[in-house]
Amino acid sequence: MSWEIIKQSLPMFQQGFVLTLYLSLVGIIGSAIVGIICSLVQYFKVPILDKILQVYIEISKNTPLLVQLFFLYYAFPAMGIKLSAQLCGIIGLIFLGGSYMAAGFSGGFNGVSKKQVESGKAIGLSNWQLARYVVFPQGFALSIPALAANIIFLIKETSIFTVIAIPELTNTALDLIGLYYNSNEYLFVLVVAYAIILIPLSIILTLLERRVRYGTFGN
């Protein structure tokens, strides 16, 4: 392994690093918004809309991101819809992440115990009040571990963007390997770069999980 080669490649990796972070951030925020909408619609069982969103969730959950991206990037232009690679990446990530986030939120809402719901009903809370004061606050706390796991998952999924040539981290490494053939060095930098992003997140995830498991509410 040559440190010289690593040093020379760092500026390129830096660009990839920033792009990975940027695309992840946009994708995560978008996914969270889609997820909240889906889980609210399902919680309140909004007629028709909940069936439509259920179809979306099943499709999103049960197909690979790579195939979703191919569809957006290669098949859509044949239908006359041309999108830039980055936009395809973001749309694909949100399409995928939305259903994962929805499952995370819904899991939390459904995890609130039946007894809590009953004792809310017993003091006369309406459906909306029950959701607002009992189910959502408790359910959100319960869903935090799943949401954090989704965040890590989505960041890792951005590595698949390389198949439509978005110059994020993985694509940068593969390009460099193609050009200079120093696979050891570039793969090393690549793994380190992901570790820098994901290890702190993974530690936070473990801590959160512990906190939620011991039922720490308030304070």
């Binding site: 890590i152 890792k156 999924e157 590595s159 698949i160 390389t162 993985t170 490494a173 593969l174 390997i177 696979s183 050891n184 793969l187 690549l190 793994v191 992901y194 570790a195 994901l198 290890i199 993974s202």
Partner: peptide, 14 residues
């Protein structure tokens, strides 16, 4: 968990 599967594949492949 931390290394994306794409990267794992390349690590082993190369």
């Amino acid at each position: 968990r931390i290394v994306p599967t794409v990267v794992l594949l390349f690590l082993f492949y190369y």
